[in-house]
Design a protein around this nucleic acid. Structure first.
Lengths: 230, 230
DNA sequence: CCAAAAGTGTTCATCGTACACCCATGT
DNA sequence: ACATGGGTGTACGATGAACACTTTTGG
């Protein structure tokens, strides 16, 4: 105790890179907002907040996401801790960055009104305050690794989705196109998707079958040493 | 500023998982020590220390490694930030964990004397204080991913090493054996190793050729989109 | 009947994996 | 001469990549 008290203490913040996929323009987007306090007031920023006493860091990240979006039960993962002494000119802040994957339809309404937040395509990010652009860059890199290695793409789509939708998502994440025959075969060969008896009819005459990600099957396969790999 | 001051501050520590490879018994080892202050005095712990004002977090990790081993210029990577409120019963401490890869010969002497530190095989880790066992577990997982994905195995070997030595290292990391013909072929086919005109004669009659990792070649290949993959 | 997106099979090159024998040398 | 670890080549199956046509249906 007395030993601990000899040492300095620091402000600890959590900043979140919130991703979503917009099926309209087939782009991966990040939620940013105009900062409403000093320093750097009025500039673009990630959503963040300060850690509280008796609050786990994971919980702080969830709380901050909930404040902005009203969402909970969302996929979140700790990304990296940014601790340069001068990263925030206002004060020394240690920032623990998280990234979140949300379904864009599920929110989209209150948040824009309440916080002046906007979805920006990753291809058109404006400069962000402090080291927030680095955070986005690192988050995107990690997302690309994760999406190839773990079935988290589904976190960015509605529960029911079609194979062409899923392919569009992956093409947005990696910014490249895939052969639709190979893509479909590979995914279906994993036996992780359940085909529904229902078609999506908005985006084509013929209609595309809906599928659903089957978490149980995935857990089973994991236990047998299966490795997701796209 | 005044905005920042409304918020609580926290002790921030850095804890390091220090790996090395012991060619004697072909085991991957972690450096742990008997904690010499309360709470949990006398129990096994990772090496750690507190972050200082005006010190970057990376620098704190380097400083703490240097204190214990006298080494610098070592491969270190941030692992994860542990922030449960009650992870340390003495006080609320946010701990940023790093892992380091060192060449065991390069140190091994002063540190054991000065700090009561010991190299323990990962297969025989005793219980550690607080969440330090989780840290080791997570570090090992990340090391396994890294070693397959980036040429960092060499950080655990002397500059000159033989293919059988390298294979022994990878077998220790993954706790499985590899076919020596396939292992050799795969590594040499990457064109990352420079063969030296010198043999290692300790461990066999015939002797094994020394090789050296060629950082320039690797950087060149990286620029051409090469991906290391074992 | 036409436009527009969904859906389907095959071929080929590449890569991972399994596997057994000879080589060099110190004692 | 023999024991010990170092070094080599081949065959087979699996996987990833390239590629073009048919199907459905609303207008």
């Amino acid at each position: 105790m007395s030993y601990y008290q000899e040492h300095e203490k620091f402000h600890v913040a959590v900043d979140s890179i919130i991703f979503s996929y917009d099926e309209g323009d087939r782009e991966l987007k990040v939620l940013i907002l105009k900062r409403n306090f000093q320093p750097a007031q009025g500039n673009w920023s990630l959503m963040g907040g300060f850690l509280k006493n008796d609050e786990a860091v994971d919980d702080a990240a969830k709380r901050i996401l909930h404040q902005l979006t009203g969402l909970s039960g969302v996929y979140m993962e700790q990304l990296y801790t940014f601790g340069e002494p001068d990263r925030d000119p206002g004060a020394r802040i240690i920032s623990i960055a998280y990234f979140a994957l949300i379904k864009i339809n599920a929110s989209d309404l209150e948040l824009v009104k309440n916080h002046g937040a906007t979805w920006i395509p990753i291809s058109a990010m404006p400069p962000l305050i402090f080291d927030h652009s680095d955070m986005v860059k690192r988050a995107l890199k990690k997302l690309r690794i994760r999406a190839r290695t773990q079935p988290i793409g589904f976190e960015l789509l509605p529960d029911k989705f079609t194979i062409p939708q899923l392919q569009g998502l992956y093409e947005a994440i990696y910014n490249k196109t895939f052969d639709k025959r190979n893509f479909r075969r590979k995914l279906l060969s994993m036996n992780l998707l359940e085909k529904l008896e229902e078609k999506e009819k908005e985006s084509s005459r013929k209609g595309a079958w809906y599928y659903r990600f089957d978490q149980k099957k995935y857990d089973d396969l994991l236990n047998r040493g299966f490795n997701f790999e796209l």
